[in-house]
Simulated scan of single mutants.
Amino acid sequence: MTTRSFLFLLAGARADGNTELLARTAAEQLPAGAGQRWLDLTRLHLPDFTDERHAADAPRAESADETLLREATLAATDIVIVSPLYWYSLSSYAKRYLDHWSRWLRTPDPGFRAAMAGGTLWGVTAMAHSEPEVAAPLTLTLHHTAAYLRMRFGGVLLGTASSPGQIRADTAALTRAKTFFATEAPLARFPYEEEA
């Protein structure tokens, strides 16, 4: 049995925000043998994504932080995007990180897609709304990203909170956090795909 290794990517504009608190509550429930690595996307220098697929020039060199993120991504069995709900979707930090997956599909390691297949993508978010459908764009972004790379999708752990520390009052979200990572995530599929 493969030991699971979780990469938690913090993508909130507020340090120790509600989304991070919810993610840390869920992570506390992981088995003792599961690896955990936490990286803060707001503290890493990740340039805006530039599409160089059809450029005549050689691709630009990868920065140290890009290499760190790419290698950490490939080393994880489970990737957890920890992003508050901003304008009904992911934060700019999380979106920029996922945009770089487009680069990593081609350079510097064209084996990125094959290496990601079979891994699991998760989301954790806090939002001001109590209606889960408000977070549908965020959930679809993560689901379809997982489907494109033939990953499993564990879903999104949603909590309701806005002011600092308010997530502690969302007892339903904290209860869900205790079992969030315990389930076997299904392989993500696009709605139009036929069952194999």
Rank of each mutant, 00 (worst) to 15 (best):
D51T: 05
A55S: 08
H129T: 10
G154K: 02
K178H: 03
D48I: 10
R70H: 12
A114F: 09
G17F: 06
A177H: 10
L149S: 13
R168I: 04
A147L: 10
R14L: 09
A15S: 06
F153G: 01
S130Q: 15
M127E: 02
F112Q: 02
A146K: 11
A75D: 15
A136L: 13
S102V: 14
L149Q: 12
S92N: 13
L158G: 00
A58Q: 11
T2A: 03
T77M: 09
P31N: 02
G154V: 00
D16I: 00
A34D: 14
D57M: 13
P59A: 14
T50I: 15
N18Q: 06
E194Y: 14
S5A: 09
P31A: 04
L21P: 01
G119D: 01
W38I: 01
A146I: 05
R103V: 00
A114N: 08
H54N: 12
A128G: 10
W104L: 09
V124D: 03
G35P: 02
R113Q: 15
T107C: 07
D16P: 00
A64H: 11
D57K: 14
T120H: 07
L142H: 04
G12P: 07
K178M: 09
L98C: 05
E193G: 07
R37M: 14
E193C: 14
T73C: 08
D65P: 13
